[in-house]
Amino acid sequence: MKSSSLALKGGILLGAIFLFLKLILPLFTAPLPMSLIWLYLFLTTIGIIVYGTLSGESTEALLGPIFRFLSGEGIEGTTKMARLAVLVLFPLLVGWQTYSGFVPSSQPPSENRTIHPAPPGEFVGLSNPVPNTPDNVMMGKGLYFAYCMPCHGPKFNGNGPASDGFNPQPANFSDPTTIAMLQESYLFWRIKKGGVGLSVEGHPWKSAMPRWEVELSDDQIWKIIMAEYAGAGQKPRTWE
């Protein structure tokens, strides 16, 4: 029976995707935020509607069962009970949603922190003046282990022994979407001016990154940058 299957298939697909994203994916990786799950479900719904309304016949296959289910004509047995349940549950669900919308939330507001805000003009386009020699990288690594490792970790992945107390967590340099996306001059800015040097959209009051210009010379900072790229197996972004 093709005509009854499309609506059902669509519903099953939506449910399956939800279960996969919500329950199965977290077995392998970090759980997804709900905003993303809703986004994917929204796209799936659009897909079902687009596919279902391609022709008159498929529109009937998609909407017909839904309409028949709603009108209650020609259905009986468990389907009839299901219809009754849906009709009762729908207003209750709306009521619950409204209630939970108005009831004071115990969830803090979401944060749209911008991870890579634009650097001030004076830090744009600087190039590393320290020659990239094994000795300099070695010296950089020494400085890294003395100053940066407690938070950013011996494996350059943001998992240092002292990383837990801070929110946001220290950056993971081995992630190909962090320092590999940035130029050395950007890192120079971040290290020299620290978290407090961020602009508003970077939420400087949250970052625990110290302002290293107080303790380290520019030369040392450039060496640390070199060591970070080398240690994390990344290459800085270049323009030329």
Partner: peptide, 12 residues
């Protein structure tokens, strides 16, 4: 959610 992910970057 961010805390569970280990930041606002999802690892995957």
């Amino acid at each position: 959610e961010a805390r569970k992910m280990g930041g606002t970057h999802h690892p995957l």
